[in-house]
């Protein structure tokens, strides 16, 4: 079995993002970038499946600028076998990414495609589902547990009400929740070895996918600051306000 894992390079989750004054986006120059956190879970799960003997190859793929390769390199350091970097600059919307991935799936013919459930930069939460639609494959989103069976996967999903379990036949798309596993650290010798693993570079334009954004970002701004309300003088007053004014209890 072959697993394709899609990873994205985003601003590190610890970095306090800063909105550009001209409203065109957020500052990314000299800002620490990392792999989108749930994508790390996706790689980890693929590596675990391979370690259990149920998969034979893991291919890590990313779409983005030259430096996006770093995320593929990291995936290689924790257990992916080879990498693919689709070069594309600027904002690539989930729809375009899923069309690119569709082309790659056609060529690579993986049995499973894993990725994080959502990227922490644009917070779209679309790519996995879109790819599933384009391929007409089943989708198991927000996975917190994956059991690989003969020709199917049993996936536990994190939904609002609790947990839902579904069975999808292979080939399938799985998007991963942070609760799925604890990603391993890349060891130094493995980082060394990863430097020697191959990463194939392909220009997005060569795939014949139109990556032009369909959504125009008119303005990016800081969220409005919350203003202080009132001070109440007693618990009685507080409860009355909550009941009658705010109507929340």
């Amino acid at each position: 079995m072959k697993i394709l894992v899609a990873v994205k390079r985003v601003i590190d989750y610890n970095v306090q993002i800063r909105v550009k004054e001209d409203g065109t986006g957020v500052v990314t120059d000299n800002v620490k970038m990392s792999t989108n956190p749930p994508d790390d879970n996706a790689i980890e799960e693929a590596v675990k499946i391979k370690e259990s003997g149920k998969a034979s190859e893991i291919v890590a793929i990313t779409v983005g600028e030259e430096k996006a390769q770093e995320t593929v390199r990291k995936a290689l350091a924790v257990g992916a076998d080879r990498g693919i970097h689709i070069k594309a600059d600027g904002i690539i919307e989930p729809l375009a990414v899923s069309k690119i991935l569709q082309k790659v799936v056609d060529k690579e013919k993986p049995d499973l495609v894993f990725m994080g459930k959502q990227a922490i930069d644009d917070d779209c939460n679309q790519t996995g589902q879109m790819l599933a639609a384009l391929l007409n494959w089943p989708q198991a989103t927000f996975a917190s547990k994956i059991e690989v069976k003969e020709k199917t996967l049993e996936v536990t999903r994190e939904v609002d009400e609790g947990l839902e379990t579904i069975e999808v036949s292979i080939p399938a798309i799985v998007t991963c929740d942070l609760r799925l596993n604890e990603p391993r650290y890349a060891s130094l010798p493995n980082i060394m070895k990863a430097k020697k693993k191959p990463i194939e570079q392909i220009n997005a334009s060569d795939l014949g996918v139109d990556v032009k954004p369909r959504i125009e970002q008119l303005k990016v701004e800081e969220p409005p600051k919350r203003k202080a309300g009132i001070k109440v003088s007693s618990v009685e007053e507080l409860v009355q306000k909550l009941k009658n004014e705010a109507k929340v209890i």
Binding site: E182, P183, R184, Y185, S187, L188, P189
Partner: peptide, 18 residues
């Protein structure tokens, strides 16, 4: 060493230093 808990026990993600 990576992946030690507060008390210094090895977590699942433990990765020894080299």
């Amino acid at each position: 060493d990576m992946g030690l808990d507060k008390e210094g026990n090895k977590k699942d993600s433990y990765e020894p230093g080299i």
